[in-house]
C-alpha cells in the first residue's frame, strides 16, 4: 500500500504529512529543551553564587562552533534548494558540507569536554557544570542524530531521487527543519551558558 500525502498536500491540513509530523515533533522538542532551560533559570536564580560562563568555559571555541553550526544550517537549506532546482550534483556538495560541518562541531565540542575533564571538572562538580553538561550533552546527541539522518540522505537515501524526486526533496526539507532546530537551540545555549 502506498503511503498517502508524501508529496501533495493533504486537503484538510494544507501540508504534506511529513511536514506536519516534523513540526509536531519539534514542538515536543521545544518542551524538552524548555523544561531544561526552565530548570536552569530556577537553579540560577535560587543560587547564592553562580559562576560566569566566561570564567570557566572557552568562548573562542564556542564562537567558532556557533559559526560552524550556522554555516551548516545554510549548507543544509542550500542542499534543499539545489534539489528544488533539480541539481543533484550541488545537492551532494551541500549535504556533504553539512555533515562535515556537523562533525567539526562535535570534534570542537570533544576538545572542550576533554579540557574540562583534564581539570577535574565533571557534571558532579557543581550545579553550573551539571546544567552545562546536561544541556550541551543533549544538544550534542541531537547533532549525532542529525548526522545519521543526513548521512543516509547523502548515501543510500539518494536512490529515491531517481524514482521519486519530489518525495526525496520533501525528505531533505524535513531533515532540514530538524537541523535548523538544532542550530536554533545552540543560538540560545551559546549566550546563556557561555556569555552570561
Amino acid at each position: 500500500m502506498e503511503i498517502p500525502y508524501t508529496v501533495e498536500p493533504r486537503p484538510d491540513t494544507g501540508v504534506y504529512n511529513a511536514k506536519l509530523g516534523i513540526w509536531l515533533f519539534l514542538a515536543s522538542e521545544v518542551m524538552l529543551f524548555g523544561a531544561l532551560f526552565s530548570s536552569y533559570v530556577l537553579l540560577r536564580v535560587g543560587a547564592t553564587t553562580w559562576p560566569h560562563g566566561y570564567e570557566h568555559l572557552n568562548i573562542p571555541l564556542a564562537t567558532v562552533n556557533t559559526v560552524v553550526l550556522i554555516t551548516s544550517s545554510v549548507t543544509m537549506v542550500m542542499s534543499w534548494a539545489s534539489l528544488a532546482m533539480k541539481d543533484i550534483r550541488k545537492y551532494r556538495v551541500y549535504m556533504g558540507s553539512t555533515v562535515a560541518l556537523a562533525c567539526v562541531f562535535l570534534v570542537i565540542k570533544g576538545f572542550e569536554y576533554a579540557a574540562k575533564f583534564e581539570h577535574g571538572l565533571y557534571p558532579s562538580g557543581s550545579t553550573f557544570l551539571a546544567i552545562y553538561f546536561t544541556l550541551t550533552g543533549l544538544h550534542g546527541l541531537h547533532i549525532i542524530g542529525g548526522i545519521i539522518v543526513n548521512c543516509y540522505l547523502l548515501g543510500p537515501g539518494t536512490r529515491m531521487w531517481k524514482t521519486d524526486p519530489a518525495r526525496f526533496t520533501n525528505r531533505v526539507e524535513v531533515a532540514g527543519l530538524y537541523w535548523h532546530f538544532v542550530d536554533l537551540v545552540w543560538i540560545f545555549l551559546f549566550p546563556v551558558l557561555y556569555l552570561l
Partner: peptide, 19 residues
Amino acid sequence: VAAYFMHLISEKKLIYAAL
C-alpha cells in the same frame, strides 16, 4: 533562522496554530 531557513514566513495556518 525560523522565518527564512525553516520557511515559517510563508507557512500554512495549521503549522502556525501548532506553534
